[in-house]
Design a protein around this nucleic acid. Sequence first.
RNA 1: UCCUCCUUAGCUCAGUUGGUUAGAGCAUCUGACUGUUAAUCAGAGGGUCGCUAGUUCAAGUCUAGCAGGGGGAGCCA
Length: 477
Amino acid sequence: MHRLKISILIIRTNKMKNSKVAELLKSTEFDRIVNVKGWVRTKRGNNKVAFIALNDGSVIHNIQVVVDVAAFDEEMLKLITTGAGISATGKLVQSLGQGQSVEIQATEIEVYGTADANTYPLQKKGHSLEFLREIAHLRPRTNTFGAVLRIRHSLAFAIHKYFNDRGFYYLHTPIVTGSDAEGAGAMFRVTTLDALKPPLTETGEVNFKEDFFGKATNLTVSGQLEGELGATALSLIYTFGPTFRAENSNTPRHLAEFWMIEPEMAFYDITDNMDLAEDFLKYLVNYAIEHNADDLEFLNNMYDKELVARLRSITETKYERLDYTEAIEILTKSGKTFEFPVFWGVDLQSEHERYLVEQHFKKPVILTNYPRDIKAFYMKQNDDGKTVRAMDVLFPNIGEIIGGSQREEVYEKLVSRMREMHIPEKEMWWYLETRQYGTVPHSGFGLGFERLVLFVTGMKNIRDVIPFPRTPQNAEF
RNA sequence: UCCUCCUUAGCUCAGUUGGUUAGAGCAUCUGACUGUUAAUCAGAGGGUCGCUAGUUCAAGUCUAGCAGGGGGAGCCA
């Protein structure tokens, strides 16, 4: 009986509740024994007392673990270097030193895993974002990437919350698609055929009838067309999933694999669409300001002194809405010489968009009614015969953050546009049937998730706002 | 894909008109120090100067090719 009691006690001690750093730093319940587990950021001190800055990713701040050197095994303490994974138990007290409000006076420390200081690449200071990109498996352990990843999570959660609270349904559109008519860029082929000797047809072409799906398939470049199928049944839907583009784009704003949010709304016209886009963006930015204040403050101090002010202004200002035609007038009258000449009918270049947003209006701009020849086949045609009800939301620093439109719901108009643009009607029979049976006005848009995260974090390169970026010639990790 | 820049210690970077033994801070190791805040102080170890070829008496430095990376552009989200 006696023994049993002792063993139960031991088990209870070992299973003491682990507290997250975030929760301990906020606590005012002092003089209790707590346990915290995490990774060592730095250790400093002298031969009497050592201070361990411990981080577990729950918050950007570290908790200070105070170690009475005499009370611990010297060899064990030597194992505690930057990067080591440890568990520390001790009394939570108000800090005796400056710089932090609480600290833990350690009574017990367990080292789970060491990090050899001679080879561990992360140090206390001085890492470039370029270097960190090459060690993407370890960079989540840095302050910067901790902050970015927590903000990324918040925004993803806020997207679901925003739509759920407003009666939208999350629709899972396919990742593998047999339709190559989406027209949004080069696609990645999905196949189980032998790359060296694929089965051939009588005319010598690859015979995709023998492929897994019995036809040529690719990774999706957009969930929009399937999204429209959902919206013409559930009224309000959104998609939020990975998207793949095989473009050879090497820029700080492009990824081959990225995440996209695509709401699609029945009975919405282009104005409803713009209202939703503006309200949505303001909500998301505001959500981050409210829920990620510590992380934003860190990024503001380290990378971009105007970050928080810029985020605030985006939530407070009314976005400028104007026609493409008016934008062209502003640009031609601006007196500025652009690298790419401006005239009615051209697609706006980055330099033009940047001028409108950053210099002329100094706030986000929503452009509408673009020339139909530079926009997709499914956009609602205006009565002038020249323009379509497209809308692009342009943001400072990153340019186009949202692209959308009211959709063409009139069967005849849609078909004639498809013929003009050589979109294969036969393959798109299912899309066309939404216009044959109970067609209604509807609208939607696409938001590039990483571009949103880029804007909110103030990072400069899109490869730094996704854990494991996929870009041309790079699919490491 | 086009234009342009970069590559020197584990990391961040200096390195003059080509010239003897390539430097600093941080990190590491040793020592000192009773509460540190990127701790501090003293000392030590650490380099095929991205790779290959060339020019030259002599190349980290000049030239070419290749590799990796950055920035700008296009395509777009």
